[in-house]
Design a protein around this nucleic acid. Structure first.
Lengths: 235, 235
DNA sequence: GATCTAGCATGGTCTGACCACACACCGAAA
DNA sequence: TTTCGGTGTGTGGTCAGACCATGCTAGATC
């Protein structure tokens, strides 16, 4: 009973890779050794190696692709929102998390980010400029609803990234991703959507205006109203 | 060129299970069909089915065990912190996330939770009582450092859960888990640790006192100082 | 009726094979 | 020499089939 058994085989590889990442032996853009090589190196089967790599894949730590060359195999990336979004999605489906809680959390993070003094004023200026472009693109009446949501998400994430805290921006993005299916499913009527999108555009512009003029408190307030209003439409 | 190919085989099972969770066909405590059965059902190999289940496993959505009977196989649970903690850990290792950002986020979430009016006063009372017990257990001088950290984590999570928002509590717990190795590694000297733990106990008691008397602003302030001070010790 | 035992289905692991893909190399044509 | 096209080779993705330790369960035993 002391030493519990069952040390999963894939865990060995996973730990080793995590250590290599920590020590810098592996860094962004690095290629992992091939699966067959890792299997031999750690004395386990290729199937178990694949387990470890699959986990790194869904967690957004590596990207895998077939073929040969520098872009093939498992390459280290860092897309934290991928794994966290997936986890939240699943737990919402499993009823372990309620949508209302996610919305509340999103408001918390986004208003906090809005009120933060930007760490890097130059970056903040870039964000203001880039979000202005996004707003223009969202004005396109030809835009598909899916595409609108994609740009909308980018808009919010960019603004949150101004705070300089990548974790907050990541969690925010993940929270949004986790429930994006729900909001899409809630508004099926195209006519309703057309009237909703008009208001969304107006709200985005007001938020952007507040950000651009440094009215952080105002921006936070507008954001809260924006998010609350939108999710109110899905009930 | 239009219909991009490469629909991962495991994705089929994953989506199906997610839908079953959403529709309620699968709920907490349900047993998934056996891997061999799922493989036949979806016309894919057992290896691919295992990929899907492995993902659900690391995400904290199911728990797997060998043998037969009602407790065997893949059983639906919901432990959101598992997957999120793992994701954050890996991305910290991959240098995609900095520890300082995690600490900042943790302070944000925890102080927010402290300032929230508890949704359920009776539950709040229970938390006050249970955290009091935890504080007493942390007074035990025989306690191993590992055990201390475990109880410490439970203390913080319980307090945050008073807010009634499970997402915030989960993210908080995950943030803490993701960097717990770092703080453990930072203080190696046992003598230093002994003096640190004395202060931690004092801080915990002050925080608990503020909570118990409904001084939420004060509790939030103490929490921020507590967390900031502790991570300051690791530099 | 209580206890033991053999059977059986489970996930965990391994082996070995085949496929589609993408780059790298090299020879042929300009 | 330069360019173009084919092919070789190694990659991850998938599959099939096998064996193991585990834990329940039903039947045999007492």
């Amino acid at each position: 009973m002391p030493s519990n058994s069952a040390p999963r085989a894939y865990q060995v590889v996973l730990d080793a890779i995590e250590n290599d990442l920590r020590s810098g032996k592996l860094e962004l853009g690095s290629q992992l050794p091939g699966e067959r090589a890792l299997a031999e190196q750690y004395g386990i089967s290729r199937a178990s190696v694949r387990d470890a790599i699959r986990i790194l894949d869904v967690m957004g730590v590596v990207r895998t692709s077939t073929g040969s060359g520098p872009n093939s195999g498992a390459v280290v990336i860092s897309n934290p929102a991928a794994g966290i979004s997936q986890a939240l999605r699943l737990h919402v489906a499993a009823k372990g998390i309620e949508v209302a809680e996610i919305v509340e959390s999103r408001i918390l993070l986004e208003t906090w980010a809005a009120q933060m003094q930007p760490r890097d004023p130059r970056y903040a200026q870039q964000v203001i400029a880039r979000t202005a472009v996004l707003i223009m693109r969202m004005d396109d009446p030809e835009l598909s609803r899916e595409e609108f949501h994609r740009i909308d998400a980018e808009f919010h994430v960019l603004l949150a990234s101004m705070s300089g805290n990548a974790v907050v921006a990541t969690m925010m993005e993940s929270l949004r991703n986790a429930i994006s299916d729900y909001v899409s499913a809630a508004i099926t009527d195209d006519e309703t959507w057309q009237s909703v999108v008009k208001i969304l555009r107006r709200q985005h512009k007001a938020i952007h205006h507040a950000y651009a003029n440094g009215h952080r408190e105002r921006a936070a307030q507008l954001l809260e109203e924006h998010i609350t209003w939108f999710y109110g439409q899905t009930h």
